[in-house]
Design a protein around this nucleic acid. Structure first.
Lengths: 121, 121
DNA sequence: CGCGAGGTACGATGCAAGTAGAACCTATGG
DNA sequence: CCATAGGTTCTACTTGCATCGTACCTCGCG
């Protein structure tokens, strides 16, 4: 149950098994709303997830369960849905499980400095 | 009975810079918490107030009522209290009324880039 | 001196959001 | 082929928060 890096580097049209990312509720950078992102980050559990992603190399994939949030499985899923719909995370289907990836480059381009604030926290 | 007679600090009505931040519940930059600030900004009304401040010259003072938020007087006061306690605004006593000032320089130093995001919004 | 304007404090209320349990889904692996 | 792991969805509960009305405060001004 360890985290495999998998080297999922989104270079150009890198698509694993998920041809259309937007169909799963991922907003494009233009669709991202700052207030929605701020609200997503204002929750302690979600903030912690993003902060932890920021301490790891770019492109790191992690399962929702690997964060071991002190909440139930369904609540964890809810929080990841909020972050996904805000544009913070991208969910990648891996068959058996799904992993989350911080949309770092897109967020840095859309909201410059925001992730830096979180990483400095 | 419920109102503590805090010492009256205004020796001059046109006193702009308040040298003592903590007396009225203003956090120091070190006391500011990013999550608290993000939560304060995630509300549409509060976001609008900050965004409007950012369109005006630095140091601009405005009364709470001047924003004409589509909410009641007590709700407006509540929102300004949230922003004040988060560190976004500084309330300045002017005897008859009070004005709010965006703590721009302090926020820029404490959370670099945050206000820029709001102004680009 | 009382009145009004601008704000704050408090209690109540209604809705949004966090939370959990249970049922369900999908792919992997024995 | 079923058991299991990891996630999602549904429903329900509960907490938090925005909202409002009311009461009250503090000036400044008739």
């Amino acid at each position: 149950m360890q985290v495999e890096p998998m080297e999922n580097l989104r270079s150009g049209c890198d698509e694993r098994r998920n041809p259309v990312p937007d169909e799963e509720g991922h907003p494009t950078p233009e669709e991202m709303d700052l207030r929605t992102v701020l609200h997503a980050l204002s929750d302690p559990h979600r903030y912690r997830v993003i902060a932890r992603f920021l301490r790891e190399p770019d492109g790191t994939e992690r399962t929702c369960a690997s964060f071991q949030l002190p909440v139930s499985k369904s609540t964890t899923s809810h929080h990841f849905k909020v972050m996904r719909e805000a544009g913070l995370l991208r969910m990648v289907d891996h068959g058996n499980s799904r992993t989350a990836v911080l949309r770092r480059a897109e967020l840095d381009a859309r909201f410059p400095g925001l992730l830096d604030l979180v990483s400095k926290g």
